[in-house]
Write a protein that binds this DNA or RNA. Sequence first.
RNA 1: UAAGCAGGCUAGGUAGUCGCGGGCGGUUAAGGCCGCCUGAGGAAAGUCCGGGCUCCACAGGGCAGGGCGCUGGGUAACUCCCAGCAAGGGUAACCUUAGGGAAAGUGCCACAGAAACAUACCGCCUUUAGUGCAGGCUCUUGUGCUACCGGAGGCAUGCCCAGCCUCUGGUAUUCCAAACAAGGGCCGGCGCAAAGGGUAAGGGUGAAAAGGUAGUGUAAGAGACUACCGGCAGCCGGGUGACCGGUUGGCCAGGCAAACCCCGUCCGGAGCAAGGCCAAAUAGAGGGGCGAUGACGUUGCCCGCAGAGCCCCUGGGUAUGGCCGCUUGAGGGAAAAGGUAACUUUUCUCCUAGAUAGAUGACUACCCUCGACAGAACCCGGCUUACAGGCCUGCUUACCAC
RNA 2: CGGGGAGUGGCGCAGGUUGGCAGCGCGCAUGGUUUGGGACCAUGAGGCCGCAGGUUCAAAUCCUGUCUCCCCGA
Length: 108
Amino acid sequence: MVSGRIPAPSYGRVYEEGRSAANKYLVMYYRDDPLPVRLGVVTSKRLGKACVRNRVRRRVKECFRHVLPLMEPRGEFIFIARRRAALCTYQELLGAVKDLLKRMGLME
RNA sequence: UAAGCAGGCUAGGUAGUCGCGGGCGGUUAAGGCCGCCUGAGGAAAGUCCGGGCUCCACAGGGCAGGGCGCUGGGUAACUCCCAGCAAGGGUAACCUUAGGGAAAGUGCCACAGAAACAUACCGCCUUUAGUGCAGGCUCUUGUGCUACCGGAGGCAUGCCCAGCCUCUGGUAUUCCAAACAAGGGCCGGCGCAAAGGGUAAGGGUGAAAAGGUAGUGUAAGAGACUACCGGCAGCCGGGUGACCGGUUGGCCAGGCAAACCCCGUCCGGAGCAAGGCCAAAUAGAGGGGCGAUGACGUUGCCCGCAGAGCCCCUGGGUAUGGCCGCUUGAGGGAAAAGGUAACUUUUCUCCUAGAUAGAUGACUACCCUCGACAGAACCCGGCUUACAGGCCUGCUUACCAC
RNA sequence: CGGGGAGUGGCGCAGGUUGGCAGCGCGCAUGGUUUGGGACCAUGAGGCCGCAGGUUCAAAUCCUGUCUCCCCGA
């Protein structure tokens, strides 16, 4: 149940081997493997200052934590926040995460 | 009450649920699990200064370079803070100021203007010789007066003569005065152009023009002189001092040093990826260059110091290894004392993040003014910048009431 | 953490040293040339020199603060 983090060298592997989906708030990469769930959140400098980037990353992690019981707990997930994610509310962000997971077929 | 000035505080709250970092305790063979406590800011930001701390065979000298610049204090230190001085602004409370030196030197001051720091364009005055104009005085000559002899023209008409009128020539003729004309001399005046000298009042230009204003004075003028004001220097008095007040003297001095510079003063270098310990890997190998004639290092350079390794390339191993540094510190709060204050001293009391891809978010309920700027990364002191709203204190001005 | 550089017409740049005119090339507009287009020729528009404050008579230039971007080293 507890989601670990993805170590920095694995990011390139996820980008190359995983599948991706995107909407206007987030870009998601997913790589399937039998290991437990690991999560990475990318909040680039384009989003804003440190405070804004921290808030976006925490919200994405919270969203992921909420949807985790609804799906198969394995694989590596990377969420990249787009610029619009810095301005939206938590509810919009939660909808965006669910939308991406449904489109990837990982969640009902 | 309104407008304003100065300073300070705060940074949504309460309750519950889930989740995260750290510490402690319990439990488990271990992974882990459970409980309790604790968990971002006034700016954590920008990285602009100053320190602590760590390392550099030690920290020394000289040059270069850089910072600072009214005075006195505070501080570990500062470009910071406090108190004051001066200048400028504001009715005032109060605010702003990189505020040493321009008689050490160099440089710049566009355009305009005669001239931008030392001269003289116009102007004013004067001298010299010249020239022009009008005038005064004087001298000479002539005319003017009379007589005679002529000439020309007109009246004037066909011609001539006479007469008269006008103009004019010659001869003779005394004096004086007036008048007129011409010429010469002298005198002063006015003007013109030239040369020499005096002057810096005035004019115009400019951001800025030789202390300002008024008067005396003078050939014209001028601090040449006088009064007041401003600046400078000396002396006296006050103040630790910047400076202030008084008095005397003589007018010599444009601005820019956030232009070079001079003077005074300060600065060794690097930075927690500092630095130290441990572990793993066959972990070191090959080639080239420099080096006891001193490499590398110590500061950019030189001296001095120190001392045997150092640099580059090739192809590899391990790895985004672990631990310490890492949070108790120039620390916060209260009281007393000293000080105008910044601040200092003493006593009591409190412990309050230490992450390492980097911990704080979400939901529910209620309340209100509906919540800004924004996230620690070795640590402090400052500065600067960003910031919704709310609260408090003191003061100024205006109005009203007493 | 430390160091360096750049912001000037739409684009790329000079001018900054020694303060006084804001310029160059391409592009744009208009006219000419051509049957038409391109090229060429002529004319013109377009700038508060990133922002704010200061020094100075005067600031793109000097000083201070600030914002944005880029690069380098560990």
